[in-house]
Design a protein around this nucleic acid. Structure first.
Lengths: 154, 154
DNA sequence: GTGTTGTATGTTATAGTATATCACGGTCAA
DNA sequence: TTGACCGTGATATACTATAACATACAACAC
């Protein structure tokens, strides 16, 4: 599941890009962080923290929750991944890394999540916030429903 | 906390309105559901399920989690309350009940959440979804940051 | 070299959020 | 009166996330 829509870029290419992003931020893509990022790529869609945890392996038994949560925090902080609030899940950023606000279209049927640029929606949100004199730090825009494929299947 | 911005309407008035909404949907505002709704009103801001649970009282000891979650599901289903995904919290609908998509502006400092109409933002979201042939069932738009008061205080 | 600082990770425990499941009682219509 | 539906009670458990403290190691100043 979630293995459809393979990303055009080669895995090695994305990895180099991710490392470049980290270096640019003065941070390091450590083995653990890289592993979690690759698991997110492999998932190809929303992934739960504990599912990632189970796939972490590790020589001295399984990894512990803080390990994967720290890595996820890091990846989200650098824009390499996103947190999907309405699923309590995480997804690799569809374009490598982005500082932009993105929208997730989450299919209730197949569980996949499509990431699209927020575009004008965020502009309007900024207007609304300005009218309320509210200073936005972070924006979450998520819509759930049926993706094109699942509509066709139904 | 959260007790500022008292709602203009009288509590009894809101209650009648809520009952009307339920009746209109062919549903019943049972004592438990009403109790949870009143707790949300009393809170005046985002409330956590387990905090509500603790305030439920009940003669034979405290209420159990499913009781409050069922009531919350009901209230959200009828538009009498909203779920705030990025807080894992719930809030009474600011206008009694609404079918509309609303935006929450969540203050990181005081924890209050202001509910505003989605307005154009949701139109743009609809456009974006249509372009992806995605059929939206539910929309979550939440922004967090600093409210006007907390900006002034800082 | 020694100490110090900062960052990443390991480890244990626990807090916090949510639902599955089965049982019980009431209402209402067939 | 029986059966379907709904709301609730009750128990248990699943799932999500973080606190708190310990360890390791590299970079740098002295």
């Amino acid at each position: 599941m979630h293995s459809h829509h393979a990303h055009p870029e080669d895995r090695a290419e994305r990895l180099v890009e991710a490392q470049r992003v980290c270096a640019g931020a003065g941070e390091t893509l450590t083995p653990i962080r890289q592993k979690v990022l690759e698991l997110l790529w492999a998932e190809g869609g929303p992934a739960k923290a504990y599912d990632l945890l189970a796939k972490m392996g590790g020589e001295s038994g399984a990894a512990k929750p803080p390990t994967v949560y720290r890595a996820l925090d890091f990846l989200v902080r650098l824009g390499l991944a996103h947190r999907i609030e309405s699923l309590n899940a995480f997804a690799a950023c569809g374009v490598g890394a982005c500082a932009r606000t993105t929208i997730f279209l989450i299919c209730d049927s197949c569980g996949d999540a499509q990431e699209i640029d927020a575009g004008h929606a965020v502009v309007d949100l900024d207007h609304a916030a300005a009218a309320a004199r509210f200073q936005i730090r972070r924006t979450v825009i998520e819509a759930s429903g049926l993706c094109a494929q699942c509509q066709a299947a139904a």
